[in-house]
Nucleic acid binder design. Structure first.
Lengths: 225, 225
DNA sequence: TAGATTGTTAATCGATTAACAATC
DNA sequence: TAGATTGTTAATCGATTAACAATC
């Protein structure tokens, strides 16, 4: 007696695809981040308990999140790191390559361009802009393929030609809203804001603002009490 | 008929103090971050709806979080920004000054040292370390009081003399665990990790690892679906 | 007054936790 | 086999949402 079940990849029997809830998608992203790092450290398998320590997500919750999509683990052993990375990528549909435009060629912009945090997950910084004309043309980023800083006037063309899906703002607070407005105008829907500015955008645009100070206040509270 | 209630500052009638739940403390920190920024932008009052847009926390949740500690708002008007900042600081007990040691004088370290994100919340970078002897003595940070990069050998003394409560790691992945171990040894309980390393620390030490790539994967999922 | 927004309740939903049989 | 860890259930807790009277 076989019961009719939802396919395991999240698609429904009618061919439509069920969206993950906000919480599940956020947690799966974090598991993927830790797994990628664990793989770099040479780990072959990882237990839900270990994942819990690094993600601060309850281990039962992790097992349940994963078991909703299939039986990925081995009892007594844990999860195979490689195969779990593949499974989560499939669930999140983020196996592809996605292009980023970076704004601001100051210390922070240089730090981001030189890092490989984004590259490991298929994000590639393909253009760096700065409104300081003295910086235009300057090569940024170490490694084999440094990028030359481009003029802000090229923005519209670059977004289209390079299929930019994410804009990363490493600009001063006063410049952030202007860049955000331009990105919105040219159709970019995801903005990563490393400035402190509170950005105003239409409802179909996602803004993620990095707030290390808020994270620190939170950690400090539990230290002080 | 007056009923006996818990005092509004979170202390109990027996003098002990009730700890906020993890969720409440995290959300209050984010409200504070947005309020601080709103104040800089010259806003006098802010509604729970506006706070919700910037924090991505439900507006009813915000009103309830706040009303648990007192009636801070004015119906039809919203919350006074200045006074709410003061109230939340009191609740989080983070009105004081706290000292940070920064590790790594590369692009990221320079970006952090030059920024005022931490300063606005009472955190002060009081020492910068780098193991590269060529960098020792180099002045870092703009503004009136740049700091000279210190030798890593001074770490133990600086942690004690300067009362360091937070260590911020802006070092390469391979160096992160070593610095974390030393910080733990000298008694620092809060570590902010901007490297990708998965840090091993004792249970009484809090590690916050910044994962912009995971945040991006999450945003991308909802863009792609 | 009229419009706006808080403070609060009630219903629903999702996360957390403990526990444990299944099984590697 | 013995030890470990998954997959899963059930109970509890906290977050979300809608709704609305109170009131500025």
């Amino acid at each position: 007696m076989t019961s009719i079940k939802e396919p395991l990849d999240g698609s429904r029997l009618d061919g439509s695809v069920e969206r993950l809830s906000l919480g599940v998608a956020a947690r799966l992203s974090r598991y993927l981040q830790v797994l990628t790092q664990a793989k770099k450290m040479g780990k072959d398998t990882i237990s839900s308990q270990e994942l819990a320590e690094y993600t601060h997500v309850n281990s039962t919750q992790i097992r349940r999140d994963l078991s909703g999509f299939g039986k990925f683990g081995k009892r007594g052993v844990g999860y195979n790191v490689d195969s779990l990375i593949g499974q989560i990528r499939k669930i999140l549909r983020t196996s592809g390559q996605h292009n980023i435009a970076l704004f601001g060629a100051g210390y922070l912009g240089k730090a981001i361009a030189s890092s490989d945090i984004f590259a490991e997950h298929g994000f590639r910084v393909v253009a760096i802009f700065d409104t300081d004309v003295a910086k235009v043309g300057e090569p940024i980023g170490d490694g084999s393929a440094p990028l030359a800083v481009r003029s802000y006037d090229d923005l519209a063309r670059v977004v289209e030609d390079e299929e930019i899906v994410v804009g990363v703002l490493a600009v001063p607070e006063r410049a952030a809203q202007g860049v955000a407005d331009d990105l919105v105008e040219y159709g970019v829907k995801i903005i990563f804001n490393y400035s402190e500015a509170l950005l105003q955008v239409p409802p179909d645009v996602t803004v993620h603002t990095s707030s290390p100070a808020a994270d620190l206040l939170y950690a400090l509270y539990f230290y002080l009490t």
